[in-house]
């Protein structure tokens, strides 16, 4: 009774590894296919369409994308927008999260509720007014407009995330510093700031990833080739040259690189990031 039979156990064992392989294949196969088409030479594209790996490999698609298209410029634009958004958002969110974590103040509940609500409602609702406002101040087709819009969109989430990092630092450390002779701001700078560096890094990573992926607002606000971000550029490319499969996928693989980089960077904080704002309040 107490001991499961050898067969039951090995059956469970096999079942577990079968399940693990299923998840692994499901997660990686699409990315693998992206890479596979990207390294398949044009002439083999159709004849070996469903083979798991082409009989010949090439990096020609990558070199065309990098050397002969505007993707490098798109990549640069996306980098500017994402890094700019990430930096500005993190600074502002750190201040907000600090206030949420350390102060009890008039209107706190209302402000927290307001931020939670902005998390719940679809931002697409305001795409038309935002277009008109941006147009009226003459910022259409500018990266600045994207940075401003993305920063505002990401502040609520990033603030809750930063708050969770500040909450993890005991208040007594600040109090000890204040007794030791610091002003509140000096305590923030000398004690809290160094301790929250990992949190700042994680927030930076989350916001970067979000900004790097954003498509619809960029599509609406950017129509000039010079200021297109990577998603917009890729989508335009797809609708214009829908047969250059290899190049599109090579561009896709390139777009994946920064995301993967930041993903590995923020992996440790995923739980905190995904639950910030969702479970609080």
């Amino acid at each position: 009774m107490m001991h499961q039979s050898f067969f039951t156990r090995s059956f469970l064992h096999i079942g577990k590894y079968a399940a693990l392989s299923f998840y692994l294949v499901f997660a990686l196969f699409p990315l693998f296919w992206l890479l596979k088409i990207a390294v398949t030479p044009d002439q083999l594209m159709f004849s070996e369409g469903t083979r798991l790996w082409p009989s010949l490999m090439t990096i020609e698609n990558f070199s065309i994308v990098v050397l002969q298209t505007d993707f490098v410029a798109y990549f640069g634009n996306s980098l500017i927008v994402s890094l700019g958004t990430a930096l500005v958002t993190t600074v502002i969110a750190a201040a907000t999260g600090y206030a949420f974590s350390r102060f009890d103040f008039g209107g706190k509940r209302i402000i927290v509720a307001l931020m939670l609500i902005t998390q719940m409602f679809p931002l697409l609702m305001i795409i038309a007014p935002i277009y008109k406002i941006i147009a009226s101040v003459g910022l259409l087709n500018s990266l600045t407009s994207l940075i401003i819009v993305y920063t505002a969109f990401n502040i609520p989430f990033a603030s809750f995330l930063m708050q969770s990092f500040f909450d993890a630092i005991p208040r007594e450390l600040e109090e000890a510093a204040m007794v030791d002779g610091c002003t509140r701001f000096a305590a923030l700078r000398k004690i809290i700031f160094p301790l929250t560096l990992p949190g700042l890094g994680a927030t930076l990573g989350f916001v970067f990833t979000a900004a790097w992926s954003e498509l619809l607002f960029a599509l609406m606000l950017i129509s000039k080739n010079e200021t297109m971000t990577f998603p917009v550029g890729l989508l335009t490319f797809v609708s214009k040259f829908s047969v250059d499969w290899g190049q599109m996928m090579a561009a896709g693989v390139l777009a994946l690189i920064p995301s993967c980089f930041f993903f590995i960077f923020i992996q440790r904080y995923l739980v905190q990031g995904l639950t910030a704002g969702a479970v609080k309040g």
Binding site: A27, S213, L215, S259
Partner: peptide
């Protein structure tokens, strides 16, 4: 967990 990090436009295209 990697699919979570793939930009949505790229997931869609893929």
């Amino acid at each position: 967990f990697l699919p979570w990090a793939v930009p949505t436009f790229l997931s869609a295209l893929t």
